[in-house]
C-alpha cells in the first residue's frame, strides 16, 4: 500500500529549469557570438571578412526575457561602421567617426564639410540603407548589400550641394566630400566587387548622362548660349548630330546633345563631360561653373539626370522598385 501524500504532481529536480537554463545559454551564446563578430569587425584587415561579420551582426537577435542587452546599436550604425572600417582598412583618413556620448549611435563627419553637417545611414534594413546627411535629409547614395551595388542619387546630390538653403557649401568643399564618397565607391568595387552606378558623379569620358527629356523646348539651348557669353565661354554646335559643345578650359569640355544612336529606342538628350585626365564628372562641371549650374537648376524639370533616384531593393524580397520621378 503506497503511502498517500497530499503533494501536487511535480517535475524531477534534474529536469527542472532546463528551458530557463537553455534560454539563458542561448542568449549568452548569442552574446558571445556577437562579441566575436564585433571583434572581427574591429580588427580584421580583410574587406570580405568585414562584410561577412557586419552582416552577421545585423542578423543576430540579441537578448531574451532572461538576458537583456539594453545598449544596442542599430542596423544603420552597422552600415556606418562597415563604411568607415572599410575606409580605414584602405588607409583613407578624410573622415571622422563620432559616437553619441549618452547613447549608442554613430555619425560621421567628412573632409570638406567638416563639422558643418553630419552623415548617417537611414532607412536601414539588412538589405540596404541610404547614406544621408542628417540636417537636410538628403540621401546621397544607396548602399545595397543584397544586390552588392552602390547607387549615387543625382537628384539629392544636386539638392544637397547646390540647392539647399541652410548650409552653404563652397565648391572646394563639395569637391572634397565627393572625393571621399568616390573613394569609398572605388574601394567597394575593388575590394568587394560591388557594382557602382556613379550617375552624375561618373567620370568616364564616354559616359552619357541621360536627361529625363526626349524633347526640349527650343529655347533651352539658346539660354545656355546667352549665359555662356559673359562667362567667356563659346558655345558651338557639335560637329555631328544635333547639340552644343562648350570648351570650358583647355582640358575640359561639356557637350549637350540629342542621342543619335538609332538602335537605341531612347532619343533622350544627354550630357557628355570630356577631360584630359578623365577625372571630371557632370557634378564637377555644375559645381565649378556657376552659369551652367544656374541654367541647369532653372531648367531642371527637363535637364534632370536619370535615374534621379536609386533603384531600391525591398527587404529580403529581391524585387526592383523604381521610385517615381518628380517631373
Amino acid at each position: 500500500m503506497s503511502k498517500q501524500t497530499n503533494l501536487p504532481a511535480g517535475v524531477l529536480p534534474s529536469q527542472s529549469l532546463t528551458n530557463y537554463n537553455n534560454e539563458i545559454k542561448q542568449s549568452l551564446q548569442a552574446g558571445f557570438e556577437f562579441t566575436e563578430l564585433l571583434s572581427t569587425v574591429l580588427q580584421t584587415t580583410s574587406p570580405s571578412e568585414l562584410l561577412q561579420a557586419i552582416q552577421g551582426l545585423m542578423k543576430l537577435r540579441l537578448g531574451s526575457n532572461q538576458v537583456q542587452f539594453p545598449h544596442q546599436y542599430s542596423t544603420a550604425d552597422w552600415f556606418l561602421l562597415f563604411t568607415t572600417r572599410l575606409l580605414e582598412i584602405n588607409q583613407v583618413t578624410d573622415f571622422s567617426l563620432a559616437s553619441a556620448p549618452d547613447h549608442e549611435e554613430l555619425g560621421v563627419f567628412l573632409a570638406g564639410t567638416g563639422t558643418k553637417v553630419r552623415y548617417q545611414f537611414s532607412e536601414a534594413t539588412r538589405s540596404g540603407a541610404y547614406f544621408t546627411e542628417i540636417e537636410s535629409d538628403k540621401q546621397l547614395f544607396y548602399l545595397d548589400f543584397a544586390a552588392r551595388k552602390l547607387t549615387f542619387n543625382s537628384k539629392d546630390i544636386i539638392d544637397f550641394f547646390m540647392v539647399q538653403p541652410t548650409t552653404q557649401i563652397l565648391p572646394a568643399e563639395s569637391d572634397q566630400v565627393i572625393n571621399v564618397l568616390l573613394d569609398f565607391a572605388a574601394i567597394l568595387a575593388k575590394n568587394l566587387e560591388f557594382e557602382i552606378d556613379y550617375s552624375i558623379l561618373e567620370t568616364n569620358n564616354e559616359y552619357r548622362y541621360q536627361t529625363v527629356s526626349a524633347e526640349l523646348p527650343s529655347q533651352i539651348l539658346d539660354k545656355l548660349f546667352i549665359a555662356s557669353a559673359p562667362a567667356n565661354v563659346l558655345m558651338q554646335p557639335v560637329e555631328s548630330g544635333f547639340g552644343a559643345r562648350l570648351v570650358l578650359t583647355d582640358e575640359l569640355e561639356l557637350r549637350f546633345l540629342q542621342s543619335e544612336d538609332n538602335r537605341q529606342l531612347s532619343k533622350y538628350w544627354h550630357f557628355e563631360v570630356l577631360d584630359a585626365q578623365g577625372k571630371a564628372s557632370l557634378l564637377n562641371v555644375l559645381v565649378n561653373f556657376p552659369f551652367i549650374q544656374r541654367w541647369y537648376l532653372e531648367n531642371r524639370e527637363v535637364l534632370e539626370i536619370q535615374p534621379a533616384q536609386p533603384t531600391m531593393v525591398a527587404d529580403e524580397v529581391k524585387v526592383e522598385v523604381l521610385q517615381p520621378r518628380s517631373i
Partner: peptide
Amino acid sequence: QIYFGNWWD
C-alpha cells in the same frame, strides 16, 4: 553661302 562664326546658331 557665308556663315559668320563657329558659335551656336
